[in-house]
Design a protein around this nucleic acid. Sequence first.
DNA 1: ATCATATTGTTACTATTTTCACAATAACCA
DNA 2: TGGTTATTGTGAAAATAGTAACAATATGAT
Lengths: 208, 208
Amino acid sequence: MITNKNCIIRLSRYKNALYRLQALGFVKVFSDNLADSVGSTASQVRKDFSLFGISGNKKGGYQIDILLEKLNSILGKDQLQKVIVIGAGHIGSALMRYRGFEKEGIKILGGFDIDPAKINRNSVVPILPLEEVKAFIKAQGIKIAILAVPDIAAQQAVEMITGAGIKGVLNFAPLRLKDVEGCIINNVNLEIELENLIYFVNVEAKIK
Amino acid sequence: MITNKNCIIRLSRYKNALYRLQALGFVKVFSDNLADSVGSTASQVRKDFSLFGISGNKKGGYQIDILLEKLNSILGKDQLQKVIVIGAGHIGSALMRYRGFEKEGIKILGGFDIDPAKINRNSVVPILPLEEVKAFIKAQGIKIAILAVPDIAAQQAVEMITGAGIKGVLNFAPLRLKDVEGCIINNVNLEIELENLIYFVNVEAKIK
DNA sequence: ATCATATTGTTACTATTTTCACAATAACCA
DNA sequence: TGGTTATTGTGAAAATAGTAACAATATGAT
Ligand SMILES: NC(=O)c1ccc[n+]([C@@H]2O[C@H](COP(=O)([O-])OP(=O)(O)OC[C@H]3O[C@@H](n4cnc5c(N)ncnc54)[C@H](O)[C@@H]3O)[C@@H](O)[C@H]2O)c1
Ligand SMILES: NC(=O)c1ccc[n+]([C@@H]2O[C@H](COP(=O)([O-])OP(=O)(O)OC[C@H]3O[C@@H](n4cnc5c(N)ncnc54)[C@H](O)[C@@H]3O)[C@@H](O)[C@H]2O)c1
């Protein structure tokens, strides 16, 4: 079982590139085409596929539609992925208004907030009171949540939603949440992303 | 010169943890304390420090204030980091309204948009017309930009701002931008982040 | 039908990253 | 003061990730 995060990210990139190639009318693809479109190497592409038992045709490359089917299945794109957002503030609202997730088969079913002023049951993605989140998760069988609450509220929120059945959290609050048994917590820490970028820009500047 | 991105991310985490420890009244810290607070190992902490020539005291651990000074210097936190945002839509606005960057010494000086309706020279972070971006970058000596424009606009936007002196871009558009000589492009691809999380949640579910 | 060629799939190799282990030594204690 | 102990700093080992090489083979050309 593959636990290499970068490898899975590459699979997403291959998938995206394949849709583009398909839209351009291509029916098959070679490992080096695909490598070019995602900025990788042909070896890496074949190695990645090999890890998942994906095979093509000697001299014939890979048939795009079959490849897409396999990648989509690995990535869970053969079923609609239901997601909720906790915290309907700046980031939470931006995510809920974003149309890009739907064409990726990711549907945000609702947002939840403690601030009564944020509640709106009639918006495209309804914003509901936090008290309803547990029932909602259970009723809809939701596994994935995006956490966009202030950092002081994050730990408690995670415990609440994992208690109700959430198995994966994408956390935007800039702190390390305590591991929860049976739940994967991934972080999007934009402060750290920027700090990282700044470091590498400075390093480059020093070389010259 | 260290090019290991994860290592630099860990430095950011150490730094953040050290501020928390300092706020709690601690003056010195041991590698295993620090490891605990960031979810790493004592060996990893000492190795990371060793790579940057940071040393502590045998049996005495590390003095937090000195350590912070060194980490801050490595991470470029000893000077204000000026940033601009291209695209004042949902994500761009959320970022510009976010107060969290300032306490990290990161200041968003302005946003730029092609849509005249978005322009607002009087908001806390002024939103200016895109035509002014080149002059602004040069006048203010800006090196870092956050790109929050629709994907079709992203490539052209990058070329424009790198031409004016931008050396690092944090790109939110879900596509691979062509490398630009002398500029580092890091991506925050939230579709892929979610896809990744979904994969690992599914894998966990299958194990059981 | 045969041959030359292009491309895969996998194994072997290399590089990078993390972990381990322990000598060196500063701090503390009796 | 001398001995004991806790902790660092680092080089060696292990684990992980990525690259290269090439045998196997399907395809298309003649
Ligand atoms: N906005 C950004 O650009 C940005 C950038 C980096 C990190 N972040 C992080 O993302 C998180 C959200 O940021 P934001 O700017 O959207 O903040 P925000 O204040 O705009 O929104 C937070 C929302 O969460 C709600 N909330 C508070 N406690 C809650 C709880 N227990 N349960 C449910 N909802 C709750 C609030 O009512 C508010 O609507 C924060 O942790 C912030 O540090 C934001
Ligand atoms: N909103 C999200 O939650 C979200 C999630 C994932 C990815 N993204 C990506 O982030 C980017 C921005 O998303 P958004 O939701 O903020 O979009 P948005 O449409 O709300 O905002 C985009 C803004 O960019 C401006 N713009 C267009 N072309 C421009 C140009 N050439 N120069 C300057 N400004 C220009 C538009 O006028 C608009 O104000 C997109 O690439 C999107 O795919 C957004």
